[in-house]
């Protein structure tokens, strides 16, 4: 058995996907006043979910990308950024990141105690 199993690798990929999502949200917020800007988002959950059924090697290779949201634009200047929506997504993503990293931390602690470290 490997030291790090599929779950641990999956968690690492999820953490990296969540970080990328934060990057996309920061980009959206920075461009809140840019005319014609289309918002971006990252859907790492579904990519990870699809890879999970295929086994460890697929999970390791999951690389979620940034998608440009092509849904309809509500604003007169052609920008599709809704600042309230971005703030909510950001809060959600931050909590998700925190949850993933706590799970990772606990798993590392279990591993550490099994090794006999302190």
């Amino acid at each position: 058995m490997d030291l790090f199993d599929t779950t641990q690798i999956g968690l690492e990929r999820a953490l990296s996907g969540s970080a990328l999502r934060q990057q996309a949200i920061a980009q959206n917020i920075a461009n809140v006043n840019t005319p014609g800007y289309r918002r971006q988002d990252v859907d790492f959950q579904s990519a990870l979910h699809a890879a999970w059924d295929e086994g460890e090697s697929s999970v390791q290779r999951v690389a979620p990308g940034v998608q440009v949201d092509q849904s309809s634009v509500m604003r007169a200047d052609g920008s599709s950024v809704d600042i309230d929506n971005e703030a909510a997504t950001q809060a959600e993503n931050g909590l998700q990141y925190e949850a993933i990293s706590s799970v990772m931390k606990t798993r590392v602690a279990i591993l550490r105690s099994a090794i006999g470290g302190v």
Binding site: Q22, A26, I29, A30, I83, E86, A87, A91, G94, E98
Partner: peptide, 13 residues
């Protein structure tokens, strides 16, 4: 302010 909040979230993460 929104940009400051985004920066703070990234920092917390």
């Amino acid at each position: 302010e929104a940009n400051v909040t985004a920066m703070q979230t990234a920092k917390t993460m």
